[in-house]
Amino acid sequence: MAKSGRAKTSGQKTPPEKPRAATGSRAAILIALAGAVVVAAVLGVLLWPQPRTELVAETGSEPGLIARIESLYNDIYVYKRTNGQYVLSFGAERLRYTESVVNPDDELDLPVYYTQSMTVGLAYAPALENAAIIGLGGGRTAWYHHKSVPDLHFTAVELDPQVAQVADQFFGVKAEENFDLEILDGRVWLTKSDETYDLIMVDAYRGPFVPFHLLTTEFYEEVASHLKPGGIAIQNVEPSTMLFDSAVATIGAAFDNLDFYEGRGNIVIVAYDGPKRDPAELRRIAAERQAEYGFRYDLTQILERGYEPEFDADAEPLTDDFAPVEYLKAIDRHNQKQS
């Protein structure tokens, strides 16, 4: 069962105090941030919806490449593997990062291990009435939750309209009853919404890193304000860089509790307020919901992926008025890991 993480330094980890940013500087930064994301959102609205274009790779291009599109935000590539799976990648030149792996013959298949671990929220959530995810990608996590719990009202938020088009055209993920698709920056969407949720997932990456404004204490406080009593947030984190320590500190500054789940190269963080969840109660709820919904990935087994990662308990939370230059090292660290 998941527990609070074990620090690299000795001694018991204590939750960091929630920072109080200077009102003037925070307001100025939020205004600037809002201006930037609103421009992006307006451009996204102008680009979506738009006439569908068939995305076909040129003859003689890379093996397996079936589509390439240059959007306002990404160079998007779709490959078809010899086993029939589709791979969605973002990047430019040799710097490409796999965003999703899709089995076109099975809409409930989650080939990427960490996406299976993200379903652990189905055991933690106080109810399964409404949920949301920031970051669509190929739509695997969002679609799994939507199709596994038909009465769950699910909202997927994606900044790039072309990513949503690719998810529709190639992977069959599109708006329908109980599945809403919002083309908007995730933080702007939160600030515009009065809705509260049982579960909010965050899986928004640009290449190897999370966009800065989606990894600050203020952002996670916004997430927390949109959760129902007992509601949870789930964040997918790539742990190979020093930013993992900062991510733990940042999310921990906005929530009372963090539980960690293994993702084979990624770590899934479950964040929530209130008392620490009782492992036996979690297992009981998981068994009941597994029996009711027949999840493809057994919730009781997903719970067994909980563990205690090592992290620096002295890492500082990231805030809107603190720009972490460590992001610049993320690509190099990722490439070293792949070489």
Results as ranks from 00 to 15, higher is better:
E62C: 05
F322H: 14
I29P: 04
S4L: 14
L47Y: 11
Y113H: 14
R277C: 08
S25H: 12
R283D: 14
G231I: 05
G24P: 09
K80F: 07
W143V: 11
I66D: 01
L136D: 05
T319Y: 03
Y220T: 06
E99S: 08
A131R: 06
V166R: 06
R333P: 00
V163C: 05
D105A: 13
K329H: 07
D168G: 09
L72K: 15
S339A: 12
D312T: 03
Q165K: 10
A254K: 01
R264G: 03
A313R: 08
E281C: 04
G274Y: 07
D278S: 14
Y124P: 02
S71D: 06
E182M: 09
L258V: 03
Y79G: 05
D168V: 06
A287E: 11
K228P: 04
K329L: 12
E99W: 02
L88P: 00
L136Y: 05
E99P: 01
A67G: 15
V223W: 00
L214T: 05
N130D: 13
G294S: 03
V237Q: 02
L122T: 04
G265S: 07
E70W: 09
Y97I: 03
F260Q: 00
Y113M: 10
D203K: 07
F219P: 04
F255H: 02
E93Q: 14
F209Y: 14
D312S: 08
L227Q: 01
K8H: 11
H334M: 10
V202G: 03
I31F: 12
Y297E: 08
A204E: 00
M118H: 02
M1F: 11
M242H: 10
L43C: 09
E308H: 06
S246A: 15
A315N: 03
S339T: 10
R20N: 13
Q301D: 15
G172M: 06
P49D: 08
Q338Y: 09
T155W: 02
P51G: 12
E158Y: 05
E177N: 12
I267H: 04
G135A: 01
S89H: 11
L328F: 12
L318A: 09
I269A: 05
D203H: 06
D278P: 10
L47E: 15
N83A: 06
P15Q: 10
K337I: 12
V101C: 09
Q50I: 09
E238P: 03
V173M: 08
R26V: 10
G263Y: 04
H226Q: 05
M242L: 13
A36G: 15
V157M: 05
E158N: 07
E54Y: 07
E304I: 03
Q162I: 13
Y73P: 02
V87G: 07
Y297D: 07
L108V: 05
V112S: 00
